[in-house]
Amino acid sequence: MAIRVFIADDHPMTRAGLVAALQREPDFEIVGEASDGNEAWRIIGETVPDVALIDIRMPGEDGVGLARRIKESGLPVCTLMLTSYDAQQYVMASLRAGAKGYLLKTASPEELARAIKTVAKGGIYLDSEVSRVVGEQEIVPESLSNREREVLILTSKGLSSKETAARLFISERTVQTHLASVYDKLGARNKTEAMLLALKYGVMTLEELLE
């Protein structure tokens, strides 16, 4: 059965390009298009697609807000963010809002197809041009201790070391020690990379992040 895809983008040329790319593959069925956030929300409600391709910057409600609304509504729709911004914090914001993937508009049609198929199957897709670290060579990460995982999850949710320490009844210094150990085990240089790599290696699931 074909994957039912919805496209929201305020730029008509981009939309036409995406439609053209997806129509070449029999695996996809385009169930709707929208040029702003509010229209997109209405059509998603009506069509309930398998995958919604959403531009981050749109008139009306923006992409991150729309992704959060879809998550909160409990609709069985996987959101894939599609944008021209290569800032990792957009990836973080999108994932925290419940998106399953993030893709640059300059990605090839093959990559687009792969991304849609990945999220439709319940996976996470991160564009390697944005999240360079996830495109780097694969390692088998050393397993994290429970405490390290707890620290990583709270930090990924956007809590500061102080807040994490208070939540776990440990000292701030201990939080930082755990984080340093997590970075080391995952090969990350900062919190963002640690979170992306943890998702990539399955050390942390998207559900844990959204809890």
Binding site: K157, G158, S160, E163, K191
Partner: peptide, 8 residues
Amino acid sequence: RIFVEADS
């Protein structure tokens, strides 16, 4: 190395 600590 830049460490950012921001309360949520």
